[in-house]
Amino acid sequence: MFQGKVVGTAGFWSAATFVFSTAIAIGDFKWSLGAKALYVVTACLLVYGVVELSSLPFSMGRRLQAFGKMRLGGLMPLRVATKLAYQEARANKTLWAAAAERLAAEKTPDGILNYVGTYFGTHVPIYGARPPSDQLEEIPKNMASNGRMTGGASRLTYQDNANTEFVDLQVKAKDVRMVLKLMAEKVFADGSM
């Protein structure tokens, strides 16, 4: 529902940029009346874009802010992704938030993020660096889903002979969007829809 609104708002900003650059180009050719008309159209598009952006729900603002922090390559820190997913679940009063608070091994903020991070590891690929290396690599699915998250979903330890550990955990933005969509579903803590 709101995804279309975000895309529409982005479209208005893109259109305003295009019209403004066209106005500058026309102004260089000394057709001042046409350039002035395009400047007015640009201003109208910008005002409309600001109005649309301000009408987005508060949770969408958090989403946009988090996606703005993404690195090149479409990856975002797992800690940020889990915090965003938990906030989305709380904002929509879904079962996910209550489950994270009640079922987390540690009843602390980091414990809740660890719980949500385990959900990410079970359902989407996670990337991390295996110390002393700084190179990100995809963590094998069995390690990601059966490992132990610590540090607010910033470390993953797999109990094998080598006690394999991954740090600097990251997830793809498209996977974060998928998990956010799941956690935003209107299933309330009391089980009603």
Rank of each mutant, 00 (worst) to 15 (best):
K5Y: 13
W13I: 07
S14A: 08
A15M: 13
T17L: 12
F18Y: 07
V19E: 03
T22E: 10
I26L: 15
I26D: 06
D28H: 08
F29M: 06
K30A: 11
W31G: 00
A37L: 07
Y39K: 04
Y39D: 10
C44L: 10
L46D: 01
V47P: 01
G49P: 06
S54L: 06
S55R: 05
S59D: 03
M60Q: 06
G61N: 10
R63K: 14
L72H: 15
G74F: 09
P77D: 13
L78I: 08
A85N: 02
A85P: 03
Y86A: 04
Y86L: 15
A91L: 08
L95K: 10
A97H: 09
A99Q: 04
A99L: 15
E101A: 10
R102W: 02
R102I: 01
A104P: 00
T108Q: 12
P109T: 14
D110M: 04
G111V: 14
L113E: 15
V116H: 05
G117L: 04
A129N: 08
A129Y: 04
P131Y: 03
P132C: 01
M143N: 07
A144I: 01
N146E: 10
N146Y: 12
R148E: 07
A153D: 03
A153W: 04
S154Q: 08
Y158G: 13
D160R: 03
D160L: 12
V171P: 00
V179A: 05
L182T: 05
V187L: 15
